[in-house]
Amino acid sequence: MSFFPHLLLAVLEGAVAAATLALTALGLSLVFGVMRVVNVAHGEFYMLGAMVAWWLSQLVPAHPLLGFLLALIGAPLAVGAVAFATERLVLRRIGYDPEATIVATIGLMFLIQQLALSVFGADAKPVNAPFTYRIVFPWFGYSGYKLFVVAASAVLLLCVWWVMSRTRFGLIMRVTQFDRETATAFGIPVGRVYSAVFVAGAAIVAIAAVLLVPIQQAHYLMGLDPLLMSFIVVIIGGLGSLKGSVIAALAIGLLGGIVSVFFSPTFAAIIATLLVAFILVIRPQGFFGAPAR
């Protein structure tokens, strides 16, 4: 294959990687931004979403589209319920203390992982894409579903942006993010906002998992990579900045996709990790984060 088709393929793969990354990092960024909680179990919420999607798709094996739609509803609900229980039973009881929540969510990460291993087993579980349309370029064919994932991610990101910037609930979330005590002094029930944000973060990553599991397969250890990449994106974009996270995800995803096609995925991961180290040295708060006071 000559250079241009190779580049086109690399850009397409990069766009898919960017969309994937933006969606998985979004929930982590939202939770950190509003609650100042580093949710180390975020990747396990992703894995749980993928497992639920697989399980629901098994209920209607002859109808992948129906299974996909069921998963789009069921996975965020199931993962959101786990997140709600986590917020009420664990995070709230330790007062959202930054250090304690890291330790608690590390414990939760192992707990969910081992539960998934016990319930679903260690095998990778394929899930059929809801449709198998193939876009035919003169040089190669490309999965229409992958481009659908890019479009769906863009729609979801726009929805989150709209909620955050244009709705009453978005204003409440931003106010809680800026100053919890003053928010309380204006009648905002901070505890309930935290619950809603934690559930929303988990539901978003569960939707990401439903979209991506036909490309990746479900496996009980699949949460680790998205967690690592989400942290990279959130650190580069700026802790707590949704805009920064999305921009960083697009940049790293595109770069990673292109490098993966021309060189290797391992080389792409090395570049991303080096980039984080570099950013932490020259701009510890990330590109769009506020400097520590």
């Binding site: 009453r168 204003l171 106010v175 800026f178 100053d179 005590e181 003053t182 928010a183 204006f186 009648g187």
Partner: peptide, 23 residues
């Protein structure tokens, strides 16, 4: 509050909206 504690990243309009939402 002491030191005003405004939501400094928000606009004047949004700061007022926070007050209006309370009741």
């Amino acid at each position: 509050p002491q030191g005003r504690r405004l939501f400094s990243e928000l606009t004047v309009e949004d700061n007022l909206r926070v007050g209006l939402m309370t009741r």
